[in-house]
Amino acid sequence: MALNTPQITPTKKITVRAIGEELPRGDYQRCPQCDMLFSLPEINSHQSAYCPRCQAKIRDGRDWSLTRLAAMAFTMLLLMPFAWGEPLLHIWLLGIRIDANVMQGIWQMTKQGDAITGSMVFFCVIGAPLILVTSIAYLWFGNRLGMNLRPVLLMLERLKEWVMLDIYLVGIGVASIKVQDYAHIQAGVGLFSFVALVILTTVTLSHLNVEELWERFYPQRPATRRDEKLRVCLGCHFTGYPDQRGRCPRCHIPLRLRRRHSLQKCWAALLASIVLLLPANLLPISIIYLNGGRQEDTILSGIMSLASSNIAVAGIVFIASILVPFTKVIVMFTLLLSIHFKCQQGLRTRILLLRMVTWIGRWSMLDLFVISLTMSLINRDQILAFTMGPAAFYFGAAVILTILAVEWLDSRLLWDAHESGNARFDD
């Protein structure tokens, strides 16, 4: 018995066209964080690309023209004298008006014999932002004059995390709450300039795509075929072959399989920071003279006294001054041990922890910024005066060393310790 099946006739004509040209192939790229070699397709503007294995951002879609970056830099340069030299806060102490600005706080630190601690604050609040705007201006002028731009481009990517104007702005709020127990506070004209400078700096850093600047100024022929001998440069993120001198053909720094002496430098910085954190938390970090009496505060006791007036601000200072430094030390110690013992479990967790400490590390400088600003506000000789204690130097040095330890660690070593050939990683 035959089955009668109805015929289905399409209502619209289906047209099949042959592909007349070869589909576009992607360029081969190595991930600078996990060293995976993959094919990167062509990316349009405002599109980002991520590593298929570790999800690290390979290409950032946010990109401004150099002219727009230069305009932002010149605007920031105009704001800087007002943000640093004009009063941020006014207080009335014992019937006398006192003005506080950024430069005055750094000068008070240096004047009291601790120039190293003052230079830490100076670099993060004044030096690094000033280098940022002058570097962008150098790129703008240098591109037109045919100057060598490689050193500036190499420095810009590392400079971003040292620009800490946003953290200093939080420190202004913390210092205001600490001082309000002794005097009446009012915002100064410099505060508005400083807030504007923070906003412009944040926007500029978020749109400063150094890798795209490398592509514009020093374009290189990408690798179009897969080759395990391809290496990625950690300076400019170019994937290719080393030249005859073993250097990256684009930025001219040595092109090595792994960062040289990464573990040794990381261990040295980490152990030194552990040693410095002990006096930083045991010795007094601030000293207040009130009517001839002397009151010393460690980091913890200062947080407890701050909690009596504002528990939320005390929580912020606790996280930045105690929780973050010790968390960074514990995480980095764990990561280094996992590399030495070739741990194969929990790779995803370790990668996330490394990215976390990379982002939060700079916030530990908050305590030094609060001390710097408070020193310029309260300084009335023996009637009422505020000065920093010996722990300030140890704390600042420990924070900087932990930042350097994270920067010096080559994250690809975590993958080397893991089993080879993993296309995915999980716990």
Rank of each mutant, 00 (worst) to 15 (best):
M1L: 02
L3K: 11
T5W: 06
P6I: 05
T11M: 08
K12A: 07
K12V: 04
I14L: 10
V16W: 07
I19V: 10
L23Q: 07
R25D: 09
R25I: 07
R25K: 05
Y28I: 09
Q29C: 08
P32Y: 05
P32A: 08
C34N: 00
D35F: 04
D35M: 03
M36T: 08
M36A: 09
S39M: 07
P41K: 07
I43Q: 08
S45N: 07
S48K: 14
S48M: 15
A49V: 07
Y50M: 05
R53D: 06
R53Y: 06
Q55E: 08
G61P: 08
G61D: 13
W64L: 14
L66G: 08
R68A: 01
A71E: 02
A73G: 07
L78P: 10
W84R: 13
E86G: 03
H90W: 02
H90M: 04
I91M: 03
I91K: 00
I91E: 13
A100F: 01
A100P: 09
V102Q: 07
Q108H: 13
M109T: 09
K111V: 02
K111I: 02
Q112E: 04
Q112L: 07
D114F: 05
A115R: 03
T117A: 11
S119K: 01
S119I: 01
M120Q: 06
M120P: 02
F123D: 08
F123L: 03
C124R: 00
G127D: 03
I131E: 01
I131P: 01
S135H: 02
I136R: 02
A137M: 11
L139H: 01
W140Y: 12
N143F: 15
G146N: 05
G146S: 06
G146L: 03
M147E: 01
N148V: 03
L149W: 02
L154G: 02
M155A: 05
K160C: 06
W162Y: 07
I167G: 03
V174K: 00
A175F: 01
D181F: 01
A183G: 01
H184Q: 07
A187Y: 12
G190W: 01
G190R: 02
L191K: 02
A196R: 00
L197W: 08
L197R: 00
L197G: 05
L200E: 15
T201C: 13
H207Q: 10
E212Q: 15
L213G: 15
L213V: 08
E215G: 14
F217Q: 14
A223Y: 13
R226K: 13
R226A: 15
R226S: 14
D227S: 15
E228A: 11
E228H: 13
R231G: 07
P242I: 12
D243N: 09
R245H: 10
G246F: 13
R247V: 13
I253K: 01
R258T: 06
R259P: 09
R260F: 10
H261S: 09
L263D: 09
A269G: 12
A269E: 01
L270S: 09
I274M: 13
V275Y: 02
V275C: 11
L277V: 11
L278F: 12
P279D: 15
N281P: 02
P284F: 08
S286V: 07
I287R: 10
Y289V: 05
L290E: 00
G292I: 12
G292A: 13
D297H: 06
D297N: 03
L300H: 12
G302N: 00
M304D: 11
I311E: 15
A312S: 15
V313L: 15
V317W: 00
I319N: 13
A320S: 12
S321G: 01
V324P: 15
F326H: 05
F326W: 09
K328W: 00
K328F: 00
I330N: 08
V331Q: 07
F333Y: 10
T334V: 13
L335V: 11
L336G: 10
L337H: 12
L337N: 10
S338C: 13
F341P: 12
K342V: 14
K342C: 11
Q344P: 14
Q345E: 14
L347P: 04
T349P: 14
I351L: 12
L352V: 12
L352D: 09
L352E: 09
R355N: 13
M356V: 13
M356A: 12
V357C: 06
I360F: 08
G361Y: 01
G361S: 09
R362N: 02
S364W: 01
M365Q: 08
L366K: 02
D367M: 00
D367L: 00
L368F: 02
I371A: 00
S372R: 01
S372H: 04
S372G: 15
L373E: 05
T374Q: 00
S376W: 02
I378T: 01
D381T: 01
Q382W: 13
L384C: 04
A385L: 07
F386G: 00
T387C: 09
G389A: 08
G389K: 01
F393I: 08
Y394I: 01
F395M: 07
A398K: 10
I400E: 04
L401W: 07
T402P: 06
I403K: 06
A405T: 08
A405K: 01
L413R: 09
W415G: 10
W415C: 07
H418N: 07
G421Q: 04
G421I: 03
D426S: 06
D427F: 09
D427E: 12
